[in-house]
Design a protein around this nucleic acid. Structure first.
Lengths: 132, 132
DNA sequence: ATAGCTACTTACTTTGGGGTAGGTACTTGT
DNA sequence: ACAAGTACCTACCCCAAAGTAAGTAGCTAT
């Protein structure tokens, strides 16, 4: 495995930007292409690994697991595994993750306003339905 | 220049995800590390190229211009250039871009809640001050 | 005359996100 | 005995995003 340069300009810049811009702090946590989708799908309630896979058909297993792990490390989701034979793992939003709801919703709302193709898509109804 | 595979799995997947998830639509537009920062800095009013550069010290010129161009193409910002000798170019949010305000604000709010280091950072006061 | 200002452009290199394709463990169904 | 189902892990590779470094035009101030 090639060693990772621990203090690249890239990381340095990220650090700088993060210190002066809260928006970048957010981007560094959920700024990949998949993280917001995963979180969005968890808003409507806890989901098993396999469920998420089915809900997000375009994602590869590697990306799914990788991002689930990172989201865990960033304290945005919980992982609960039952130690039974066909594994049963459930992912759910942490309080911190739940508070991202408004962000995701604001995004979805904007997408609906910005693009006609989401005309039939009600963000609040769609993702918030099982929130209590 | 090496030819770009016009229909990579990556792009295919992006397309799929975009069709089923409005959040991904947003990420594909403002999902880079720099775009949200640029937009965030434009919320408080139109800015010259050089101003943006000073406001975002960590960004390189290449990245700034590149993203300004893309944001223009995506109809999120306007570019107004006066044809005078020391160039004078002003960037401002389009109506569509302005509607991203709530998204950026929701992000900033979340960052403040999620991380103590932004305790003194008031998102609404900071970015919205010159909005009318 | 030369350096400086502005808003860029271009060529080249590096980095890491993401995809592909396999394998693992352990049990249950046939 | 063997496939199927779960939730993963691993090695390898590709490519596009991001960084580095230099150059451009045309005027102005010293």
């Amino acid at each position: 495995m090639t060693k990772v340069k621990e203090s690249s300009t890239r990381n340095y810049n990220k650090g700088i930007a993060e210190m002066t811009c809260p928006v970048t702090y957010v981007m560094n946590k959920i700024g990949s292409h998949w993280k917001p989708i995963i979180l969005y799908n968890l808003i409507s309630g806890p989901k098993r690994y396999g469920e998420l896979k089915r809900l997000i058909p375009a994602i590869t297993e590697k990306m799914l697991i990788q991002h689930l792990k990172q989201l865990q490390e960033d304290n945005l989701i919980n992982r609960k595994a039952e130690d039974i034979v066909p594994p049963h793992v459930v992912y759910s939003l942490t309080p911190s993750g739940k508070e991202l709801g408004p962000v995701l919703m604001a995004m979805a709302d904007w997408a609906i306003k910005d693009n006609a193709k989401y005309a039939g898509f009600s963000a609040t109804a769609d993702a918030g339905m099982e929130l209590k």
